[in-house]
Computed example of a mutant assay.
Amino acid sequence: MPKSRGMRIPFRKMHGLGNDFVVIDAREAAVSMTAARAAALADRRTGIGCDQLIVLEPSDVADVRMRIFNNDGSEVEACGNASRAVGLLLGGTQFIETLGGLIRSEARPDGVSVDMGAPRLRWDEIPVSYAMDTLEMPVGWEDLENPVGVNVGNPHVIFFVDDADAVDLARLGPLIENDPLFPERINVNVASVVGPDHLKLRVWERGAGLTRACGTGACATAVAAIRRKLTGRKVRIDLPGGPLTITWPEGGTIDMTGPATLSFEGAFEDSDFPA
């Protein structure tokens, strides 16, 4: 006897500079999401495949609530590229509730701009496990030393190096991500200065691994470079997937501008990926 089919759940496949997402709109019809289900949907061999799974839900404080699941199933606070994708999907100006706080997106002809809020810079806001200076953190892993700590809704450390491409981030990334110094784990960024107000960046993303683009990583790296006086307050960040423009005015919030793309639409059977 053929298996009984369940409810079909529509989704959109989107990406921002190659950082790709499965977006499920659950504002009108609730969709149950667990870590196991998110990981199964994100699997590139047996699921739909993505870096992050995004679930849109109703919000009492914003236009929409955005839940973000990494491809290992962990739910995280923020994702800059996903914020642009959701901003493109919804259009116009939208306020988006996330675990990392309230953000604002604006779809424009030159891309999607997202106000990511103010960075958090104290050691207990990153967080790290004991008090230290977050501008010159007195820690290191092999040749990666003295990073900057920044929280932009999720936690980051940024290492400035001569050549970001030369760093074995696939090996060092998970080592740093899971170090006991970081009680909530950490996103690992390696950046090099290309020119005035121009940086090159590679990111090991917490719970997702090496990524073609990380919007929050670009924001955190721009803040770190500005704090260290390596750049001015408007910075071009070149990632493997393409460039983002980050602006952080003195005393203000971080603005990130870049592209987002709808790749295709589809649906899956609810019973094929049980919650």
Rank of each mutant, 00 (worst) to 15 (best):
T93E: 15
P109M: 10
L90D: 13
A85Y: 01
F69L: 05
I103V: 15
S83I: 13
S105C: 12
E75C: 08
G91N: 06
L102R: 12
F95V: 15
L88R: 15
P109I: 12
A107G: 03
D110N: 13
A78T: 11
E97I: 08
R67A: 01
P109G: 12
L90F: 10
I68Y: 00
S105F: 04
R108E: 11
A82C: 12
G80R: 03
G101E: 09
N71H: 09
L89S: 12
L90G: 13
A107N: 12
E106P: 00
T93R: 15
D110C: 07
G100A: 04
A85D: 13
P109S: 09
S74V: 01
S83M: 14
M66G: 10
R84C: 05
E106W: 08
R67H: 05
S74E: 04
N70Y: 05
E75K: 04
L89F: 14
L102S: 03
C79F: 02
P109K: 12
S105L: 05
L90R: 13
A85I: 10
E106F: 04
F69V: 07
E75V: 08
A78Y: 01
T93F: 02
T93Q: 15
G100K: 02
N71I: 08
L99Y: 04
G101F: 05
G87K: 09
G73Q: 06
G100V: 00
P109D: 11
T98N: 01
G91A: 10
S74Q: 10
R104Q: 15
A107Q: 12
R108K: 13
L102W: 04
E77Q: 14
P109T: 11
L99D: 08
M66D: 09
Q94K: 14
R108W: 01
D110S: 12
R84L: 10
A107I: 05
E97D: 14
N70K: 05
I103R: 06
I96R: 05
V76M: 04
G87R: 07
G80M: 07
A78E: 02
A85V: 14
S83A: 15
N70M: 02
N70R: 00
I96C: 06
V76R: 00
A85H: 00
V86T: 11
V76Q: 00
D72I: 06
S74L: 01
R104E: 14
S83K: 08
G80V: 08
R108L: 14
L90N: 13
S83L: 15
A85W: 00
R104N: 03
R108T: 13
R108I: 07
N71T: 10
N81P: 02
D72H: 07
T98R: 01
E97W: 08
G80S: 06
N71S: 13
L88T: 09
G87W: 03
I103P: 00
S74K: 03
G100N: 05
S74C: 04
